[in-house]
């Protein structure tokens, strides 16, 4: 709070006082008063006015500066009312009361939306579980009556399934911790599940698999990890080259981490797009070519990895390769925690 501004705000008072002085001078002159008396009066008046102004200024400055400072430093600025000292002037009290009412109505509205959002999420989760039933049914039908359905319809079903999974994990990524469970899991088992899941498409597209994953154990949630690797696999298949495609899966290890590397010799990613592939809704030039990219797959992967404490990186040279690396830290903390619970 600046004094100059405060003064400017009270310009009307200064004008009034000046006018008062003028009147007093006229009055004193009319009554032919003593000069010393006039000076004494003026000095007293002036001191009173200045004191009044200063008192008003400092009282308000204390309150407002406190408020401004706390609003600036709180990460949830709307909670500031709980943090400040109650002002001891009428205007401030009014101001606080109004702020309180505004806050209240805002919180009501936010919690209203929160409720709606949660309802929606619940509905989506339920819907996904429901939609999986006809999907299972269709998959079984296609398998049982090969004369009526061909491989193409199976691939389309797999696409639906994949999009449904994306929604499920998008809904899950920022909600309750109860949805995932970190455990010691076998990396090669997860890889094998994903490969088996994509078997038809891999065979159909004649993609060769080079798997060098040892029986590495990592700490993760197997379902989430399966989803993440499945997304990467889908990208490998989607952005393959016409001929001689392969996907190479390797696991490496050093002192602190286990690395899973998934590399393909597909069309790659433009250098300018590389840094943004994990951004939400980013489709880049690859996506625009094939027009089947939602730009959500890798974004969800990144978020899930963050939650699980893995690092996911992508490296690519256009027309040569794309390489995704997931880093699992060998955190002994998990191991110790598991041992403790076992004992």
């Amino acid at each position: 709070m600046k004094f100059k501004e405060h003064l400017k705000d009270r310009l009307y008072a200064l004008l009034l006082i000046s006018f008062l002085y003028l009147l007093l001078i006229l009055l004193f002159l009319a009554f032919k008063s003593n000069l010393q008396l006039i000076i004494a009066c003026f000095v007293l008046l002036t001191i009173t006015f200045i004191l009044l102004l200063l008192y008003d200024f400092f009282r308000k400055r204390k309150f407002y500066n406190d408020l401004i400072f706390k609003v600036g430093n709180l990460d949830k600025a709307y909670l500031v009312l709980e943090m400040i000292d109650k002002p001891r002037f009428y205007e401030g009290e009014l101001f606080c009361q109004i702020l309180y009412d505004i806050d209240k109505s805002m919180i009501e509205r936010v919690s209203n939306f929160e409720g709606q959002m949660n309802d929606f999420k619940e509905f989506i989760e339920m819907w996904i579980h429901e939609v999986k039933i006809p999907l299972s049914s269709l998959t079984l039908m296609a398998h049982n009556h090969k004369d009526k359905y061909d491989k193409k319809s199976l691939l389309q079903m797999k696409r639906i399934e994949n999009y449904v999974e994306q929604v499920l994990y998008y809904v899950r990524q920022d909600c309750a911790e109860s949805d995932y469970l970190i455990n010691k899991i076998n990396l090669s088992k997860v890889i094998s599940n994903v490969i088996l899941k994509n078997k038809d498409e891999l065979l159909e597209n004649k993609i060769e698999l080079l798997v060098e994953v040892k029986e590495k154990e990592v700490f993760s949630d197997s379902k989430w990890l399966e989803f993440i690797i499945n997304q990467i696999f889908n990208n490998c298949i989607k952005y393959k080259k016409e001929k001689n495609s392969f996907i190479k899966i390797q696991s490496l290890e050093d002192e602190n981490s286990v690395y899973l590397i998934i590399e393909d010799n597909g069309i790659g990613i433009k250098k300018s797009d590389l840094s943004r592939v994990f951004d939400k809704s980013f489709t880049g030039s690859n996506g625009r070519y094939s027009s089947r990219s939602t730009g959500m797959g890798l974004y969800i992967c990144k978020n899930l990895c963050k939650k699980l404490g893995h690092k996911i990186e992508i490296d690519s040279i256009q027309d040569e390769f794309t390489r995704v690396r997931i880093t699992f830290s060998k955190n002994n903390f998990y191991e110790e925690a598991l041992n403790v619970t076992k004992k």
Partner: peptide, 24 residues
């Protein structure tokens, strides 16, 4: 298809756990 569902089922004595939609 959450991990905790699976762990729970296995702890109740299931021999395996498969999620829909499954490959036949």
């Amino acid at each position: 298809n959450t991990e905790s569902d699976e762990v729970l089922s296995m702890s109740y004595g299931a021999d395996d756990y498969i999620t829909k939609p499954y490959n036949p």
